[in-house]
Amino acid sequence: MKHPFRWVALAVGAAVCALAVVLALTVSSDPHAEANTSRLVGKQMPKFTVEGLDGKPITSESLAGRTLVVNFWNSWCIPCRQEHDALTSWYAQHHDDPSIAMLGIVREDTKAAIRSYVKDQNVTWPVAFDPGAKAALDFGTRGQPETYAIGPDGVVVASKFGPVTPAVLDQMVAYAQGTN
């Protein structure tokens, strides 16, 4: 073969160009924007038992038949603090509605820190600890905050990874209520 080095150089060049194009494409994308939608969407909500602030267990069965908003959170993550006001105002609007229930499950935090946060920030909706981090695992949570909307039939219809706004919550719940 005449001038094999030339051909090798050109082949390497083509491969490197291809790699460069790929890298250029990914530079603009956000590496953390993994599919924002949880894989749980469309499936049945996993059964769970969590521990309320008073120490009494709260089971998933006790919440059955209602549209459920489950929010995984903790006291130290910044986006959790960002969505706190949104959750408070949304809960104030909807807590009278018997067909809707909201539950905040703690993820990766100590009991002492949560208790003092609940007291200082006046958290009004039910909050529960997750012994053994089992519920977080069964839901397939990828971090916090992560919010799920579950229809009355127990099917998870929507999820959001990251802080929610009242508009997003309304949308998720409307979607959950639409499926009967």
Binding site: E108, G132, A133, A136
Partner: peptide, 11 residues
């Protein structure tokens, strides 16, 4: 050492 990792190992 995160609690989710410990929960996963237990699971």
């Amino acid at each position: 050492a995160t609690s989710s990792a410990r929960a996963t190992r237990a699971d």
